[in-house]
């Protein structure tokens, strides 16, 4: 959509996936996916339910580790270094690659404590520093003006859209390089969705965003690149404007025109 999308160059790649195969127990979920995600752009993963797009996303911050019986082959490289090795500090990786979930999941704490949680975990304890991180993060997530008078109120009192932006603020607070968004708007109404989309376009200036979405309009509205996955296979990956206007693959065309899925 955005005509200024630059062509993908090797040194712009922040995350590289190389022949990635993933199994839940014995059943395969990804059959050898290879793609490269560019820095400071929005990359969207689309595809029907169960195609493996969320699984792929969760490989980037090793959230699949939390699921019993997951086996991974192939490689994922972050800034050129493999992140699948046992020696990797997963907690540090997750600090650098943040995540926002499908359903907003604020902690049962105050708004302030939600945002300050990440910095606290990573060792920031000074109140003044935390205050400024909280303010900056909430401002970045376009939530500051709505909550600045009730930072000590429970986060669970916020509306669904506000909660999701709070989760984005929480992710930003640890100053990640990449933010993974797993269907962040699927539980929101169009107005809240629009706000999140605006926010993503704003965040693109500083962060690399990877979004999984069921909503093809959303993918075409916000993303620079789109990957279409089907049955655990990467069918097509390219610039969003090209993929939506002139898909190379028949399957992609069928899916984005609503013939299936």
């Amino acid at each position: 959509m955005t005509p200024t999308t630059p062509p993908l160059q090797a040194d712009d790649t922040i995350l590289a996936v190389d022949a990635l195969r993933l199994f839940y127990g014995d059943s395969p979920a990804l059959h050898g996916v290879t793609l490269a995600i560019p820095r400071r752009q929005i990359t969207a993963f689309i595809g029907p339910s169960g195609c493996g797009k969320s699984t792929l996303l969760r490989c980037f911050n090793r959230m699949n580790d939390l699921v019993d019986g997951v086996r991974i082959e192939g490689d994922v490289r972050f800034e050129g270094r493999s992140i699948l090795g046992a020696a990797l500090d997963v907690n540090l990786l997750r600090k650098r690659i943040g995540m926002v979930f499908q359903k907003s999941n604020p902690f049962p704490k105050s708004i302030y404590e939600n945002v300050a949680y990440g910095p606290r975990v990573h060792g920031t304890t000074r109140t003044g520093e935390l205050d400024s991180i909280v303010e900056r993060s909430l401002k970045s997530a376009a939530l500051w003006d709505e909550v600045k008078d009730r930072l000590r109120a429970s986060a669970l009192g916020l509306s669904g859209g506000q909660q999701q932006r709070l989760c984005i603020a929480r992710a930003i607070a640890v100053q990640p390089e990449v933010i993974l968004l797993d269907e962040p708007c699927s539980a929101l109404d169009p107005v809240a969705t629009a706000k999140i989309e605006d926010l993503m376009l704003e965040l693109k200036k500083d962060y690399t965003l990877v979004i999984v979405t069921h909503n093809m309009q959303q993918a075409s509205r916000v993303s620079d690149r789109t990957a279409f996955l089907y049955m655990g296979t990467l069918v097509e990956y390219g610039r969003t404007d090209e993929l939506f206007v002139k898909p190379r693959e028949k399957q992609t065309e069928d899916y984005i025109t609503g013939r299936f899925g």
């Binding site: 990786l93 979930f101 049962p108 949680y117 975990v121 929480r170």
Partner: peptide, 27 residues
């Protein structure tokens, strides 16, 4: 305590112990 809340904490780079101590136990 919902699984989503635990995952939210882990996704921020908290260890299992930090998640348990700071989020799960209070809840």
């Amino acid at each position: 305590v919902p699984r989503a809340v635990r995952e939210g904490s882990m996704a921020l780079g908290a260890t299992k112990f930090e998640t348990t101590w700071r989020v799960v136990l209070p809840a």
